[in-house]
Amino acid sequence: MKTKYALFLLLISILILPQTMKAQGCVAIRHFSSSIGNELESNLLGKGDFQVGMNYRYFKSFRHFKGTEEEPDRVSNNTEVINYSHSWDFSLNYGLTDRLYAGITIPTVLNERSSLYEHGREERHKTFSRGLADIRVGMGYWLFDPETHLNGNLALGLGLKLPTGNYNATDVFYNVGPEASPQTRPVDQSIQPGDGGFGLTVDFQFYQTITDDLFMYGGGFYLFNPKETNGIRTFRETLSPILDNESIMSVPDQFALRAGLGYALSHTFSASLGARFEGVPVEDVIGGSGGFRRPGNVLSIDPGISFMKHNFSVNLNVPVALRRDRPQSVTDLETQLATGEPRNGDAAFADYLINLGISYRIGGGKSISEIEPESDLQFD
């Protein structure tokens, strides 16, 4: 019984960070997590419990792909686009009942982008963006009573993404103005803190114990962005007349799925290994899909380690990309039909990303950690 109880605590701990579904560092995929962070341990709250947390993410994207084929010459010729992304998600979750929970995620970002083609193609320069990103609020519900179903459960959630992030962040671009002068322009879509649209998120998460020391976990979210474009100019039409249909930024959907196995190494440490699939679709489910976007998806192997003691948790995950895909976009297809020439834009992806999360539970009611192992909880 004590072994299974310890396994349960490690199970909910190991998912606090990974379930935020951070994107794998594709230029096509902006920073995002689901409305309530999709953090299992944060959402297994007793009535009146609070959970405060911070998640840090870092990646460097620089490997260019068209479809699933890499373009290694971009790196060897020093023409690759390089994005450095740092983000911090600050979250607060609250147990409305033992099964119903609510939360808010306040994200901040610091991004750097280095390229040639955005600065006249002759000199490499950098652009930056920073500040508040799009705040998310949401609610979720465990389908089974957590106190009597410690062996497994499933939660469903619904949330709202607010357009609080700046979606018209600007910086200086060189060699692009009159007589090759500098000019202030919006930074690339991939490093804009916000996307300019209200969004709706749906998410799920589950866990299931398999043996005394082994468990299965998983979850995912989908962000519906009904707004088609946000009115911000990309200046891509200045690069080539055939890019006129990409002159305004799109407001794309986004999705992520994750599942794997975890193993209890001790009463405080556990390790996990899973798979992660995430990306930006070619077309939105609701609303139009026009404007400029870089659709893309990444399949990653997702190792992690977790520490939990009392109400304090620390998690580290380092997803490593196995397959990267930049499919043909709506505007790519439009250009191909108009010109009769094949067209598939590219995108830069990272090799790996780093996720580090810290959280602390403040018990207003009876928290999970206060449940005695000798009680009548069922682990069958």
Results as ranks from 00 to 15, higher is better:
Lys2Gly: 06
Ala6Trp: 09
Leu7Lys: 14
Leu9Pro: 02
Ile12Trp: 00
Ile16His: 10
Gln19Lys: 09
Thr20Ile: 04
Met21Thr: 04
Lys22Cys: 01
Ala23Ile: 00
Ala23Glu: 14
Gln24Cys: 03
Ala28Cys: 15
Ile29Asn: 09
Arg30Phe: 02
Ile36Tyr: 05
Ile36Gln: 10
Leu40Gln: 14
Leu45Asn: 10
Lys47Ala: 15
Gly48Trp: 05
Gly53Gln: 14
Tyr56Lys: 10
Phe59Gln: 05
Arg63Ala: 11
Lys66Asn: 11
Lys66Glu: 10
Arg74Tyr: 14
Thr79Glu: 12
Glu80Gln: 15
Ser85Asn: 08
His86Phe: 05
His86Val: 03
Tyr94Ile: 04
Arg99Met: 11
Tyr101Val: 15
Tyr101Met: 14
Thr105Gln: 08
Ile106Glu: 01
Leu110Tyr: 10
Arg113Ala: 13
Arg113Lys: 14
Ser115Ile: 09
Gly120His: 00
Phe128His: 15
Ser129Pro: 07
Thr148Glu: 14
Leu150Ala: 10
Asn153Ser: 12
Lys161Pro: 10
Asp171Ala: 08
Tyr174Gln: 09
Ser181Val: 06
Pro186Asn: 15
Val187Asp: 12
Gln192Asp: 05
Gly196Thr: 13
Phe206Trp: 15
Gln208Glu: 09
Thr209Lys: 15
Thr209Tyr: 07
Asp212Gln: 13
Asp213Phe: 11
Tyr217Val: 05
Gly218Asn: 10
Phe221Asp: 10
Asn225Trp: 00
Pro226Gly: 09
Lys227Gln: 15
Arg233Cys: 04
Ile242Asn: 09
Asp244Met: 07
Ser247Gln: 08
Ser250Lys: 13
Ser250Val: 05
Pro252Tyr: 04
Ala259Tyr: 12
Ala259His: 10
Gly260Asn: 06
Gly262Met: 04
Ala264Lys: 11
His267Tyr: 01
His267Ile: 00
Ser272Asp: 06
Gly274Asp: 04
Phe277Lys: 01
Gly279Thr: 03
Gly287Ser: 06
Gly288Tyr: 08
Arg294Asn: 08
Pro295Val: 04
Val298Gln: 07
Leu299Ala: 06
Pro303Met: 09
Gly304Glu: 09
Ile305Ala: 07
Ser306Glu: 06
Met308Ala: 15
Lys309Tyr: 12
His310Lys: 13
Ser313Trp: 02
Arg323Thr: 10
Arg324Asp: 02
Thr331Glu: 11
Thr331Asp: 05
Glu334His: 03
Gly340Pro: 01
Ala348His: 11
Ala348Ile: 00
Leu356Asn: 07
Ile358Val: 14
Ser359Cys: 01
Tyr360Asn: 07
Gly363Arg: 09
Gly363Thr: 07
Glu372Trp: 00
Asp380Arg: 14
Asp380Met: 07
